[in-house]
Simulated scan of single mutants.
Amino acid sequence: MAKRLIAFADEHPEQALAWRIVDDEGRVESGGECVIEDLPRMGGGAVVLVLPGDRVSVQRAVLTARNDKQLRAAAPFAIEDDVATDLDDVHIALGPVDSVGAKRALHVVATEYLDMWLNAFEGSGFTIMDVSADHALLPNSDNIAQVLALPQRWIASADQWSGSVDRHLGQDVLEAVLASVQPDAETEAGPDMEMLEVGDAFDYLAARTIDKHVSLLQGAYQRRNASEGAAMDWRRWRLPGALVAACGLFAIAGTAFEGAALRQKSDEARAQTETIFREAFPQVSRVVNPRAQLRTQLAGREGGASEFLELSSMLAGAVEDNEGVDVQAMRYDRGQSELQVSIAFKSYGDLTQLKDRIIASGGAVQEGGSRQSGDLRLGEITVTQP
C-alpha cells in the first residue's frame, strides 16, 4: 500500500517540524517532530508540504476568462486593493468558484516564504509533490462553516473560502470573519458553524491531504505528482528517451531465446525493463507483465503510444548534449495531444536552444512561467505537433 510523508511547515526551515506518514486511504501510520534532514524518506524522498494558514490568505474575486492561463493573468489585478504587499512579491493559486458561481477563491502566499521552504526541502534531497495551506485541507460546505481549533489559531472553511484567525483575537472576530464570507448563513446566534472535534490536529490534517484541495503548485510552481497516475517523475533520468529505450527492451524481452546464455540475456532484459517501468510509472505498485502494463499506461491513461513516443523523442533529441537543461517531469495530455514538461535550466540561452531544437525536429513549443530556485530556473513548456 502506497505511503506518503506529510510535513507541516512553521516559521523557518531550520526549526523542528511535525510530520506524519499516511497510507493511500488516509490512515496515519506514524509521526513525530524533527528537522528536515532527519525526516523519514518515503517514495524516493517525495513529500507533501502543508503551510501554516496564517501564511496563506484567501481572497475572493469575480474573474471571467476562458482558461487557467487567462485567469492567472487576471487574478492579481482583481485583488490588488485587498493585498497589503506588492503583487510582484506574492504567488496566487486558483481555487474553486463559490456556490453562487460568482466569486473564485484565490490563495495568496509570499513567494519569499514559499521559495524558502521549497529550497530547503529540495536542498535536502526531497521532492515536493504538493503544497497547500492547512485551512485548505478542511471539508468545505456551502451552508455551514467548518472550524478546527489549533493551539494558537482557528482555521476555518466555508463556501470555497478558507482562512486562519488568531485565537487571541477572540471568537467574536472569528464569527465576524465567517459572517463576511457566508452572509446568507448567519442566524440570530451568529454564523452557522461547526467546531470539529478531532483527537490530534496534525493526524486529522495529514489524513485530509488525500482528498481534493487547492494546491499552491500552480503556474510557475507547478509540479507533476507521480502518485496521481498521469504524471511521470524523470528526476533520475537524464533523458525522457528512457521510455523509448524501455520500448526497445520490451521488444528484446518478448523474443524467444534459446540456450543458457541467451536465456540469461533475456532475463537481464526483462529485469532492466521492469526497472525502467517502475521508474517511469511509480504509481503502479505491482509489476507482473511490464510490456502489457506499459501498453495500458500509454494507450489508456496517457494517450496513444505513438503520439507520446513521437513527442518525447523530439524532447529527448532536444535535451541531448544540452547540459544546461534537465527534464524533471512530464505528462502526456491525450485530450490535447500535448506533452507538458517541467524543466530546470541554467539560462534563457539554454531554454532558447531547447525550443529551437524541438522546432527543428518538427515540433512546436509553448513556454509557460518560470521561477528562480538557487542557481537554476524552474519552468514549464508544452510540446505539440505544429
Rank of each mutant, 00 (worst) to 15 (best):
R208N: 06
T209K: 03
D211W: 01
K212W: 02
H213E: 00
V214I: 11
L217V: 01
Q218V: 11
G219P: 01
G219F: 07
A220Q: 08
A220N: 07
R223P: 01
N225G: 06
A226I: 08
A226M: 05
S227F: 10
E228R: 11
G229R: 02
A230K: 15
M232W: 04
M232V: 12
W234L: 15
R235C: 02
R236Q: 13
R236G: 10
R238Q: 13
P240N: 13
A242G: 13
L243S: 04
V244E: 06
V244Y: 04
A245P: 00
A246R: 09
A246H: 13
C247H: 12
C247E: 09
L249K: 07
F250E: 07
I252P: 01
A253D: 02
T255I: 05
T255S: 12
T255P: 00
T255D: 12
T255L: 03
A256W: 13
A256K: 15
F257M: 14
F257C: 11
F257T: 15
A261S: 07
K265C: 06
S266F: 01
S266I: 00
S266A: 14
E268D: 11
E268H: 09
R270A: 07
R270E: 07
R270K: 09
A271G: 00
A271V: 04
T275K: 10
T275I: 06
A280Y: 06
A280R: 05
P282C: 12
P282T: 10
P282R: 07
Q283F: 15
S285V: 09
S285R: 07
V287M: 02
V288S: 13
N289Y: 04
P290C: 06
A292P: 01
R295P: 00
Q297G: 02
L298Y: 06
L298G: 04
A299W: 04
G300R: 14
G300L: 09
G300W: 01
E302I: 07
G303P: 06
G303N: 08
G304M: 06
A305M: 13
S306T: 14
E307D: 14
E307A: 13
